[in-house]
Amino acid sequence: MKVEGVQHIDAPRAKVYQLLVDPVGLSRFIPGCEQLERTGDNTFAATLKAGVGSIKGTFKSTVKLEDLRPNEHFRMVVDGKGAPGFVKGSGDLDLSDEDVGTSVKYSGDIQVGGTIASVGQRMIQATAKMMAVQFFTSLERDAKPSGDTSSAPPPNFFRRALSWISGWLREFFRKR
């Protein structure tokens, strides 16, 4: 399924970029990330305990950052395997300045396979939505100018995050 959208983050571009390509940051944003270790240049091994409610699976994953152009662009490739199946995704993130803060343009592709694909059909979309929200909530929380860390995301934040992720999902389901 295609992933596409634009996300506004209320923080300067350099800061957003730095957080996104930093393993510590990533491990905080990727939902369910329990462990993230550097295994090479911009390559990480991660253990993701992903899922919702009582439904959870552990995925051994590699996360790779490619095409890094500081403060502008990078590509993230995630490849996770576990007993419930696999999750693979790659996406280009493009950062640009906005009047206030940074705009993150995202475009990529996600594949889900195995049990989760064959039985979780009715919830995959909602799960992806939820995880995207979690990713950007955490990013926004960390990216906020310090001193402001405890406050909730801006009121329209969830709506925006949701509409972005649902855009591509709708696209995906329409194709079918």
Binding site: Q121, R122, L169, F173
Partner: peptide
């Protein structure tokens, strides 16, 4: 509400 879509019904 951002409505779900699945094989049976689009949002």
């Amino acid at each position: 509400v951002d409505a779900n879509s699945d094989l049976y019904a689009s949002s």
